[in-house]
């Protein structure tokens, strides 16, 4: 296992970002610098190689984000935005189409979260990945291909560019320009109303779960008439 040799991504000068926002539940905006990861169909194996899934906690996942894209087998670094000190401290990840396709592994959004990313802006997202992001409180918001292209170029030219993702207004502001974000209603509600902790929401309905179960013939062994 080469895990021990993983170089952590350069972090913000202010120290590692906190994993818990000030109000842990309601998210209204994420501001900061951005980091582009270009390419369509970036799958979860590329976000976090399967060999790192063997760890039984998520603690170290940030160090392994995009590992094989960032390092040669010898451990020598490759050219990748996550190795580029100009993007140190970025909290907004910019991606292209179908980001996060592939497996349902939550290690992928965990790796991204623990790299300091608090929001992902892209052309489109794989469904399971986007759902896994939402339950961790990471918005996955959508702009057009053209807008993403412009945004990526602007960030590459000036990595210190401040970007503001307002969930409340469904806008992204950058360089004096404001773009309308597409955010699925369910994701938007969960994040802005602070209801993304689905376990808490559903636990409140445990009696209704039992009632629903009682009506399903297979949960009573098909006893009696179906």
């Amino acid at each position: 296992m080469t895990a021990g040799s993983a170089a952590p991504r350069p972090s913000a000068s202010g120290g590692p970002a906190s994993l818990t926002p000030a109000d842990p539940m309601r998210l209204s905006e994420i501001s900061g610098t951005a980091i582009p990861v270009e390419g369509n169909d970036i799958d979860t194996d590329r976000i976090i190689p399967a060999r790192y899934l063997k760890e039984i906690t998520f603690t170290n996942m940030g160090e392994y984000a995009f590992y094989d894209e960032r390092f040669e087998e010898s451990g020598a670094p490759k050219t990748h935005s996550f190795n580029d000190p100009r993007y140190a401290g970025a909290s907004i990840l910019i991606v292209n189409k179908n980001f996060g396709c592939g497996s349902s592994r939550e290690h992928a959004p965990q790796a991204i979260l623990r790299s300091g990313i608090r929001a992902i802006v892209g052309e489109s997202f794989a469904e399971i990945f986007a759902g896994n992001c939402t339950v961790l409180g990471i918005p996955t918001v959508v702009l057009s291909a053209e807008e993403i292209g412009t945004l990526m170029s602007a960030v590459k030219q000036n990595p210190k560019l401040r970007i503001r993702v307002s969930l409340a207004e469904k806008t992204l502001t950058c360089d004096g320009r404001t773009l309308a974000l597409q955010v699925p209603d369910t994701v938007w509600k969960a994040l802005t109303e602070g209801t993304w902790d689905s376990t808490r929401l559903m636990l409140a309905n445990l009696d209704k779960v039992r009632k629903t179960a009682a009506k399903l013939p297979y949960l009573s062994g098909f006893a009696g008439a179906a």
Partner: peptide
């Protein structure tokens, strides 16, 4: 089971299968 405040639906799962990789966390 019912509608959640998020707009999503709470759906009962009849059979849950787990394995060693994604369950310990």
């Amino acid at each position: 089971v019912g509608r959640l405040p998020t707009g999503q639906t709470q759906v009962l799962i009849g059979l849950h299968l787990i394995h060693e990789v994604t369950s310990p966390q």
